[in-house]
Design a protein around this nucleic acid. Sequence first.
RNA 1: GCGGGCGUGAUGGAAUGGUAGACAUAUCGGACUUAAAAUCCGAAGGGCGCAAGCCCGUGUGGGUUCGAGUCCCACCGCCCGUACCA
Length: 855
Amino acid sequence: MTRYAPNEIEAKWQKAWDDAGLFKAVRDTSRPKYYVLEMFPYPSGRIHIGHVRNYTMGDVVARFKAANGFNVLHPMGFDAFGMPAENAAMASGGHPKEWTYNNIDDMVAQMKPMGFSLDWERMFATCDPEYYGQQQALFLDFLEAGLVYRKNAVVNWDPVDMTVLANEQVIDGKGWRSGADVERRELTQWFFKISDMAGELLDALEGLENWPAKVRLMQENWIGRSRGLQFAFSTVDAPDGHDRIEVYTTRPDTLMGASFVGISPDHPLAKVLERDNPDIAAFCAEARKGGTTAEAIEKAEKLGFDTGITCRHPFDTSLELPVYIANFILMDYGTGAIFGCPAHDERDHEFAKKYGLPIKAVFVPEGELPGDPDDFVQDAALVAPKDVEARYVLGFAGEEIQTGTQAIETAIDFCEANGVGQGVTKYRLRDWGLSRQRYWGCPIPVVHCDSCGVVPEKKENLPVQLPDDVSFDVPGNPLDRHPTWRDVPCPNCGKPAQRETDTMDTFVDSSWYFARFTAPRADTPTVMEDAEYWMNVDQYIGGIEHAILHLLYSRFFARGMQITGHLPEKSKEPFNALFTQGMVTHAIFQTRDANGRPVYHYPEDVELRDGKGFLKDGTEVEIIPSAKMSKSKNNVVDPMQIIESYGADTARWFVLSDSPPERDVEWTAAGAEAAFKHLGRVHRIVSEIAASDGDGTGDEELLREMHKAIHDVTMGIESFGFNAAIARLYGFTNTLAKSKAGAAAKKQAAKALAQLMQPMTPHLSEDLWAALGLEGLCAAADWPKADEAMLVDDVVTLPIQVNGKRRAEIDVPKDMDKAEVEKRALAHDAVQRALDGAAPKKVIVVPGRIVNVVA
RNA sequence: GCGGGCGUGAUGGAAUGGUAGACAUAUCGGACUUAAAAUCCGAAGGGCGCAAGCCCGUGUGGGUUCGAGUCCCACCGCCCGUACCA
């Protein structure tokens, strides 16, 4: 009998699959297709255990569907543009292109030994000119279709390095390299008109039944539909052209509690005022300091500046509301101006307290005794849920007692009837800014001409290729300072003109790669026959961190591609089912350098004793538990060691064991050896069975267990309960090992075991398949079917509770009627003892599950 | 700050509102062995008890229910996202 030797068998079976062309996806309209896709990786250079987990899950689905008769498309590529390549070039002087392609080669070399059922012939990287050229074609079609436009938007500006920074490069409001205070600065940028589709993208979420509810909810909140009132305050003492301030509010019912008007530092009125008033200019300059992230803006201390201008209240013209410039009001949302009602909004409340503004209650909780209503809201804002009834003491429309929702609707109706603004529906979703002032991205294919303006590049001139001769020794975009690349004739008039030097956001690259996989070498973005056959993605698998942006942008892009004729109608929603797997986390080991800055240590350099970590020289390290694996924190675990020591099947089995796929897992290497031992045990058990013959006892029992295992494992895989499927396979292996059944029955059970394990441990399964003398490849065999008749037991064990505490159990025939079950339960000694002579008040019998006696 | 999620033995985790801890890891005990490895068998949430058994127990505090890890409310902790990380 041979020993389990993964390093010998794995390469052999991979070659056998290749020779049989098992994973090559070929359009075949006579068979149902299944498209399974894992979110493609960024080519960092090393695969990490999170990748292994992600691709193993996808591979289980792909192999399972193939065994169930589907024509499977399971491709892989690389999300290859982006900042890390430029950072590497800056740090070590190489070229982003070289760095990226070397990394891709390394990662492919690490992924191939895993035995994934991927069609490698379809592989591409988004930095291939063949890919990004087609992306430029899509951009031009989107431009023509009115889905792209230019406008001003703010970026993080590093005034020392004179360059735009990514949010990630702004640390505590300072540039990561220069340490200078970052400013918000406006640039003209390209935008996708995703906000035009906000309502549609929101409404369509309802149809995504096979997406996690939490992802749909996150997208719903992100798109953020709100019904509100837009109206104008008339101003007093404002500069010319600003006699009105448009505001938008979702709580028009609180209008009578308004005590101030707030405008964004980027509001047109603020910009006029700062020109003549140095104090206002100073305030606005201060407010514009720091990064552009919503988090930074929201967490900053709320500050305001009284402009001296006032507004008249539309319903009580004796009221004059001061106009403040406030640092927490975003120009991007609504009209960039609000009215503040401190009594019913926590942020406004804080603001009013700080600047001594009045706090007037508009409503009080329903049922409150009369008193001074304002007393309710002096210490904290009263923010009542919209569906709860309240008593309006300063209402101006509708009943005195009404819910927030009713009050809002009646307030809008009243305002419209009285010519004070109108009800509008707004969305929180902003347009998608795609311009990046960076080299390593897809060039935006337009030309700026002095005579013709912005001119699209001609499609026959695509791809607009990135120049190779660039350097990264100074900050800024190398395309901007390239001596010749910018200079091109205008595609329209032929006069000298300049290329756009902005490149595209890498989210654009990942917003249509799934469609490109259906025809990866075509000289158009997609080919309709292929898209018709292979789309949609039947199962998409990736990290929860992409729940909003990537998935929302992809949904937008699919719509855009449908409008521009690159995808069929059915692909508006490109992902039929989504599964979001949890992240793999690992403790961070850190010490501090002389300046108190953290120094991170690799897990393999740290020895753990009694829950404390020590370096080789004995220094104790601080352990930060459970953080997302990140290259910059040195807490990435390399799976190659496991693959080299134990083989791919052990790594695959191990990453699927124990943890539910959707949950985060804390990585420990302790279980890898145990997984290897188990596979060795399966190998030994099945090898022995293959060599055995003769009769035994308990054939029927073993086959019943086999059918139950087939049923449970099949259900486990279909519901992404891979850990449960594996636990079931452990159980079935134990049953098989202990069984005294005859050789024929055991061989039948062993065959089923090999097949059920095949999606997880494909190499081992092929070996078992061959050892059992079975024809062909296990990977090509039809999935086993459970016999329903073998799944039900004749006798069930029922626990008996008295007052919810388990006191006994009885074995009864599975279809015994309730009255008889009740009788037997009450007759039980332990039940009688628990009742202590008292008569039961009530007996609940749940057939097949439980009996509860209420004393 | 805001939006979303998670929290169960020493550890990973299981459990359509129905016996909490399946399955596995680590640990301990035993068999086999000259010995070890490998393998096989067994124990094991905490407490009390010779035992039968009893009490407690799913982050904390309330609630709904015949019955709550599961549903509801509040809180604590951690994770993800927050529009230029991918």
